[in-house]
């Protein structure tokens, strides 16, 4: 079974992020890593391919500047190869343009299942998985906390606020996974050494049959109008217990709709 996992390479959250004042987008010139939220999809893909007794995990990623360090991490975990769409024309792409590019690349991979995270850790739009499914004309299951493949169908436990739904879909399908789906492995030393020799096929926008005007700044239908600093976190409220502490805690939690 071939599993495509969409992965994003993002600026290392351990280093302070910076916005480009002119474009109002995140600068991507520093240290780039595999988005943590994508490691779950990679691990799930590896486990499903292993359980199926054959097939491989293929990574699909998009970056404006040939960056592949994050892909190497996923390859070191065990993915077989990667498709990297890298083109200066991609700079400034909005969510839909990104989805178009990813969908075109996925079409080349002969996938039985496409896994994504629910959202990236730098952009947080959370719209791309559904857009990719729509563009590919495939069924979509979101927020998977458990996945099993049974023949030509995928069975998913879909996380909800109240618990989970049990959902089935024919394959191929697009499934977005939560951080609870599996525990990602650490890459082994052997895996890290092997990753250096695994293929990363770099494609340009034109290779996918897309016009440069459909992506990047040129194709963006979404504009960042303004960016402002997040409000500073306020100090917590200190309540002296005058015999009614428990009631006041309950009232506070009820107000937050936690209980």
């Amino acid at each position: 079974m071939n599993v495509v996992v969409c992965v994003k390479q993002i600026p290392d959250p351990a280093t302070p992020g910076e916005l480009d004042a002119s474009t109002k987008t995140l600068r991507r010139s520093g240290s780039i890593i595999l988005d943590d939220s994508d490691a779950y999809g990679v691990e799930m893909g590896l486990q499903l391919a292993d359980k199926a007794g054959g097939g491989e995990v293929i990574l699909v990623s998009m970056a404006p500047n040939n960056e592949n360090k994050g892909l190497r991490t996923a390859l070191a975990m065990g993915a077989a190869k990667a498709l990297l769409i890298s083109d200066e024309a991609l700079a400034g792409s909005d969510a839909l343009s990104t989805a178009k590019v990813l969908a075109k690349a996925i079409e080349r991979a002969d996938a039985d299942l496409i896994l994504t995270a629910t959202e990236s850790t730098d952009g947080y739009t959370g719209t791309i998985p559904a857009q990719v499914a729509e563009l590919l004309g495939l069924p979509m299951v979101t927020f998977a906390k458990h996945i099993e493949v049974d023949g030509d169908r995928v069975k998913v436990q879909r996380q909800t606020e109240a618990g989970y739904d049990e959902v089935e879909s024919p394959l191929p399908a697009v499934v977005s996974v939560t951080a609870g789906v599996v525990e990602p492995r650490y890459p082994s030393f052997k895996g890290i050494m092997a990753a250096k020799g695994k293929p990363v096929d770099e494609l340009k926008v034109a290779d996918l049959g897309l016009d440069a005007g459909q992506v990047g700044w040129a194709g963006a239908r979404q504009e960042i109008a303004d960016v402002s600093a997040a409000e500073e976190r306020k100090a917590g409220e200190i309540v002296e217990d005058e015999g009614d502490g428990a009631e006041r805690i309950v009232a506070f939690l009820e107000q937050l709709k936690v209980i």
Binding site: K69, R72, T73, A76, Y186, P187, F189, M193, K196
Partner: peptide, 14 residues
Amino acid sequence: SEEQLMVRDAIRQF
């Protein structure tokens, strides 16, 4: 090297 840094990062996470 890049591979050595990957090993370092993985061990550091562990």
